[in-house]
Design a protein around this nucleic acid. Sequence first.
DNA 1: GTCAGTTCTGACCGATCGGACAGTTACGGT
DNA 2: ACCGTAACTGTCCGATCGGTCAGAACTGAC
Lengths: 184, 184
Amino acid sequence: MSRSSTGLRDRLLASALTLFVQHGFRGTSLADIASDVDCSKASLLYHFSNKEAILAELLLPVGKELVALDGRLAGLAGEAIPEAAVCGVADLAVRFRQEFKLLFDNMSDAAALPELRLQGVDGIGRRLVVAMAGGSSEPQDEVAALMTLGGMFVTGAADLPLDDETLREALIRTALRTIGRARG
Amino acid sequence: MSRSSTGLRDRLLASALTLFVQHGFRGTSLADIASDVDCSKASLLYHFSNKEAILAELLLPVGKELVALDGRLAGLAGEAIPEAAVCGVADLAVRFRQEFKLLFDNMSDAAALPELRLQGVDGIGRRLVVAMAGGSSEPQDEVAALMTLGGMFVTGAADLPLDDETLREALIRTALRTIGRARG
DNA sequence: GTCAGTTCTGACCGATCGGACAGTTACGGT
DNA sequence: ACCGTAACTGTCCGATCGGTCAGAACTGAC
């Protein structure tokens, strides 16, 4: 990563994101991040009170967007719910590719963050599956919904060489087909 | 987990599997495993030469099955390839639910295992995606294939309260629909 | 210049981890 | 009873980790 003209704090955040994505939160040490941006570990801990604070700051934007999507879904009804859930998740998966992978690969660590807990990120995953399943509790529909949500997570995080528009379109079309609501 | 009448070594393996799945490979210490089966850490290291050896032994069966599936796919042609890939992965995802989650959540650690490396687990993921995409390199087809593979991984690892037959059927039907090869 | 505040750092600390090792117990064959 | 081997354990060690702290270096305001 090396030098840049931006502030040290921003460079530390950017480095932490890529390192966390590559080697996981637990697999990345504070010394790794500091050495990547060529500063001291003490300097890193001057900008962030502790290691968890870095993870929280990286995940906070995605968390807010997920909460917003969850709220939007609660105001809908009928067939609009699954489609809105798919489009909403696809949009986030494209815009926050690395953050999605970070969240996905470090679920247990992220779930322990108080900064995200007092926001309402808790049952969102389950609610998204229910939404994509159209409220059905048939095993067939639940499996399809879970596969759709998981598939979008994985695909968004796969670092495909596709521009945002292409990826989002492909995600939405495939997801709607998977949950059996392909749009003509 | 506590006691049992089976051998200590088997109990250590079983405990390690559940603990690795729950808290990750890095997030589980040798002391955690030893204390879970109520024996000493030294005793654990008598049965397994080191921590990585435990992970390797847990993943070896799945690795072999994946290599076998990969080989079977290489002997097929045409439309049989995507269907065989889907059915093969679905079968493994059902039979090795916990191992799939373990492999998925600890990709980087698992990739570093020499025991699995000198077997051919390397490019299997990419080859499976290509197989499910039917050889197409269209972004649409590649995204659908990646979503299918990722979705099956996630769903198999989700610990759903479904029996093997129901889950496998739901996985296969949904996957074939996702890659656009739904069977009548 | 000097002074205050921000930024940054080297040195250090306690905790935890994976692992090594010598020694002890349990046990089956003779 | 003796002995060799397998199973098991207490204890110790070096490395690494996240985090603290006192102070150096830089900065602009006056």
